[in-house]
């Protein structure tokens, strides 16, 4: 297939090969394949798109942005390129610009659940929860089992409802798309929400084994490892019930010590005061230090 071998390169075969390599996350080989193809077919929009996508996937956002802008100047309606452009703008924190790209995409593709999911996720990242909910709802109306929209709806359930870990959307996502990485990530978050950090850690570690270069997964595993470390056991109430537990512990300490000052022998009262203070300092400082250490 290569030029060196004297055979005529086949654009479709190169594209197919690059797609297959991308699916297997073999970015270096995919880049070689696409570069070879671009030498023979410099005008191929699909190859240009793949080149930008490989840059994006291998965390070279500036190169990806440059490539995608060049591609969009030639093919302004390229669907995949516009989606990638929106994601790249989000990554570069150009959120209003990214939103305009999503809106244009939705105007041109009003039935694309992918666009509803992408725009909804941007809304969720900018605290526009109600709009994100409506976008997820609209996307699921267009495509009831769409993985991206189900993930979005499951995340919204986790944010809005105390029993969000039992979300119907999450269950549907796990049922319809068990192979999807996002299903596993949603499950990890839901398990952690329910207090099962060890179960969540096992799944997250398995995911990281399959995608060792994923920074978000690495961060998730690190955070779960910190939460399940033996030294965090005394902080279980704070981990499980968050600020509610922090308020309760502070109030119990304040009122309890106040009562104890009058009712308890001085030595016992002083010991309890130091224990409580040590616990408060431990709870504020140790989790941060542990996350840094791990």
């Amino acid at each position: 297939m290569s030029e060196e071998s004297g055979l005529t390169p086949d654009l479709a075969a190169i594209e197919q090969e690059a797609h297959a390599l991308l699916e297997r996350r073999r970015y270096a080989q995919a880049r070689n394949s696409v570069s070879r193809g671009l030498r023979s077919f410099p005008q191929s929009t699909e190859l240009q798109y793949l080149a930008a996508f490989i840059d994006y996937a291998s965390e070279r956002p500036e190169e990806a942005l440059q490539g995608i802008k060049a591609l969009l100047s030639q093919a302004p309606h390229h669907y995949g390129a516009r989606m990638l452009y929106a994601h790249l703008l989000e990554g570069a924190k150009q959120l209003p610009e990214a939103e305009l790209v999503w809106i244009d995409l939705l105007r041109d593709n009003p039935q694309s659940a992918d666009c509803f999911a992408g725009y909804g996720e941007l809304m969720l990242k900018t605290l526009n929860l109600e709009k994100a909910r409506r976008l997820a709802q609209e996307g699921l109306r267009q495509s009831p089992d769409h993985a991206g929209c189900l993930y979005l709806a499951a995340m919204i359930d986790l944010i809005r409802h105390r029993n969000g870990a039992d979300s119907e959307h999450l269950q549907r996502m796990l049922l319809e798309h068990p192979e999807h990485v996002r299903s596993a990530i949603a499950l990890v978050i839901a398990l952690s929400e329910k207090g099962n950090d060890r179960g969540a850690l096992r799944i997250a570690q398995e995911l990281l084994r399959h995608q060792p270069d994923s920074k978000p997964l690495l961060s998730l595993v690190r955070s779960l490892r910190a939460r399940t470390h033996w030294s965090m056991l005394p902080l279980y109430p704070l981990q499980r019930w968050g600020w509610t537990a922090a308020i309760a512990i502070t109030l119990v300490g304040l009122v309890g010590l106040r009562v104890g000052q009058q009712a308890l022998p001085p030595l016992v009262f002083e010991t309890l005061t130091w224990v409580w203070l040590a616990y408060v300092i431990y709870s504020w400082t140790w989790p941060k230090l542990l996350r840094r250490y791990l």
Partner: peptide, 10 residues
């Protein structure tokens, strides 16, 4: 719905 296609950011 038209209001979903109105910009929210910026």
């Amino acid at each position: 719905p038209d209001d979903l296609l109105q910009p929210t950011l910026g």
